[in-house]
Amino acid sequence: MPGKLVLLRHGQSQWNLENRFTGWVDVDLTDQGRAEARAAGRLLAEEGIRFDIVFTSMLQRAIKTMWLALEELEQPWVDVVRHWRLNERHYGGLQGLDKAETAAKHGEEQVHIWRRSYDIPPPEMAADDPGHPRNDVRYRHLDARVLPGTESLALTLERVLPYWHDAIAPRLKAGETVLVTAHGNSLRALVKYLDGIADDVITGVNIPTGIPQLYTLDGELNVIESRYLGDADAAEAAAKAVADQAKSKLGNL
């Protein structure tokens, strides 16, 4: 039998709190975000889960969430692999902008399309922008052509899926229990694939911060069951809070 899979969205970040488009900008967790990460670790401990390997992104909010969760689990020794393909969706020229101010400038309908449509990306970031990934030292060994200047959720899925097939799926098929600590959109892309969610449905799916989602899979890695750990009503309320904030403040991704 394959191992089990846990998906964990990072805790609240500083730019989540400030209602800014974050994307690949490497912002830290807030105090609340750190508390959410530790709470996730306690939920995993209550479930009795022991991990064989952790996959995370190259961004500190996901990495620190992983550290804090593993500390609560008393499993700091677990092997960790960081990879850029698990980074958050790149928000292009919107990165760093206040979401409400952006809506006032471009109109709420246009910003909603950029944020929540499946295959329409925001305006692209210029290649010579200091914030472009090709100008970030951590990606210096990559071909600049693979580094995005903007992404839709569809493009994020195209980026994440090869890593799932090449790195994560083989460990699950070998019977290992795997934790993936990443971001709202890189995880939404993976959930879309795992659960076979339609393009027009995934746009309404919201993943709460700091609540582990446990997948039980068959030998072909088809989903047998998935559930959020802890109180189901609390997880539903946390996901609804993300959706409600998206309606009132254009989201908190």
Results as ranks from 00 to 15, higher is better:
188 R>Y: 12
105 K>E: 14
103 A>N: 05
213 Q>K: 10
52 D>T: 02
26 D>C: 02
225 E>W: 06
85 R>A: 12
104 A>G: 10
156 T>P: 06
165 H>T: 00
77 W>C: 01
232 A>D: 11
47 E>S: 08
220 E>L: 10
221 L>S: 01
23 G>M: 04
80 V>W: 10
92 G>N: 11
175 G>N: 11
75 Q>E: 07
184 G>P: 11
114 W>Q: 11
50 R>D: 09
168 I>W: 05
132 H>W: 03
184 G>A: 15
250 L>W: 06
232 A>N: 06
27 V>P: 02
232 A>F: 09
175 G>V: 09
53 I>T: 12
145 R>C: 00
194 L>S: 02
66 M>S: 13
157 L>M: 05
120 I>G: 04
59 L>F: 04
106 H>E: 13
58 M>W: 02
39 A>P: 01
219 G>C: 12
15 W>C: 05
39 A>N: 10
112 H>L: 14
244 D>W: 02
249 K>P: 00
239 A>Q: 10
199 D>L: 03
51 F>N: 03
119 D>K: 04
26 D>H: 02
175 G>I: 06
39 A>G: 06
95 Q>E: 15
5 L>W: 01
54 V>P: 02
164 W>M: 07
220 E>T: 15
178 V>C: 01
84 W>F: 04
224 I>R: 11
37 A>S: 15
66 M>Y: 12
3 G>K: 01
153 L>G: 07
24 W>K: 00
96 G>N: 07
166 D>C: 05
41 G>L: 10
97 L>K: 09
169 A>E: 15
149 G>Q: 08
201 V>Q: 15
46 E>G: 05
21 F>K: 00
146 V>L: 13
214 L>R: 08
230 G>N: 06
75 Q>H: 08
208 P>E: 08
50 R>L: 06
160 V>D: 01
65 T>Q: 05
152 S>Y: 12
